[in-house]
Simulated scan of single mutants.
Amino acid sequence: MKISAFLNMMEEIAPFDHAEEFDSDKIGLVVEGTEDIDVICCALDPTIHAITTAESIGADMLVVHHTPLFTPVTRITGTTARILHILLKNEINLFVMHTNFDHAEGGINDALADMIGLSNRARMTMGIVGDCPLTLNQLILKLGCGVRVYGTIDRLDRVAVVGGSGFSQDLMEQALDLGADAFISSEMKHSTARLAPLPCIEATHYALESPGMKALAMRMGWTYISDPPESCLLV
């Protein structure tokens, strides 16, 4: 497949104009490599592990959710230099699909809702609300990560899910209007938690977004590279 055909295919999966305004110049082909695309890998983040694994597989393209060049680059050093060196040396293309894939049908939030088993779904401006078949303990096991619960969860009949950093007052109000009993996202701020209009479940960013990239890889026949961040809870 030529790179032009690949880009057209990705536009159909997650149209660029679905991206949030802050994100519109940070998606798509961010590192250009070979023109011929045969072997494609997929990961959530362009980590050193993901890049070197793609290199060892002989990938021509690595598709990720998060760009390594999110802010204007004024110098190339450290990990960024290593990432770019490996990509450019091996002519591996790097393609980013971020908030456009959050919004896309079959994207990050749909995959998260599928994993939890939500039904009777309604879309918010970002994220999904649906009927939940799980208890809180079952939900935590399904997410596969430690969570923090803010507020008291009396029932979990209907929940809102937003992959990534989705705790905003506006989205929580939307979720409440759509009948949500709880709101699941990541990276809760103290001030936001204090004003939350419904109970919140804070999971890790990786746990909420990696299922979407894994599902995409399975759907497309690509190689998915798992690379969860190392962390532990000390009490």
Rank of each mutant, 00 (worst) to 15 (best):
K2A: 07
F6Q: 12
L7C: 14
N8R: 14
I13E: 07
P15T: 09
F22Y: 14
S24I: 10
I27M: 09
L29H: 03
V30L: 10
D36N: 13
I37V: 15
I37A: 01
I40R: 06
I40D: 06
C42M: 09
A43K: 11
L44P: 00
P46S: 06
T47W: 03
T52S: 14
T53A: 10
E55V: 14
S56H: 08
L62N: 03
H65W: 07
H66N: 07
L69I: 12
L69F: 08
F70V: 03
P72R: 12
T74S: 13
T80K: 15
T80M: 15
R82F: 00
I83W: 11
L84H: 10
L84S: 10
H85W: 08
I86W: 01
L88K: 11
L88E: 05
K89N: 11
L94T: 03
A104L: 02
I108E: 07
A113E: 04
S119K: 15
R121D: 00
A122M: 13
I128V: 11
V129W: 04
D131C: 08
C132L: 02
P133G: 05
L134T: 07
T135K: 10
L143V: 04
L143C: 09
L143G: 10
C145T: 15
C145P: 08
Y150E: 13
G151C: 06
T152W: 04
I153Q: 01
L156D: 00
D157E: 15
A160H: 06
V161T: 09
G163A: 02
G166Q: 05
G166T: 01
F167R: 01
Q169G: 06
D170Q: 14
Q174K: 10
L176A: 11
L176N: 09
L178S: 11
G179R: 02
A180R: 01
S186E: 07
E187L: 14
K189V: 00
L195M: 14
L198E: 01
L198A: 03
C200F: 10
A203P: 09
A203S: 15
L208G: 07
S210R: 05
P211R: 04
P211C: 06
K214F: 05
A215V: 09
M218I: 02
M218D: 03
I225N: 04
S226Y: 11
P229L: 03
P229K: 07
C232S: 12
C232G: 06
L233E: 15
L233H: 15
L234V: 15
V235C: 10
V235T: 11
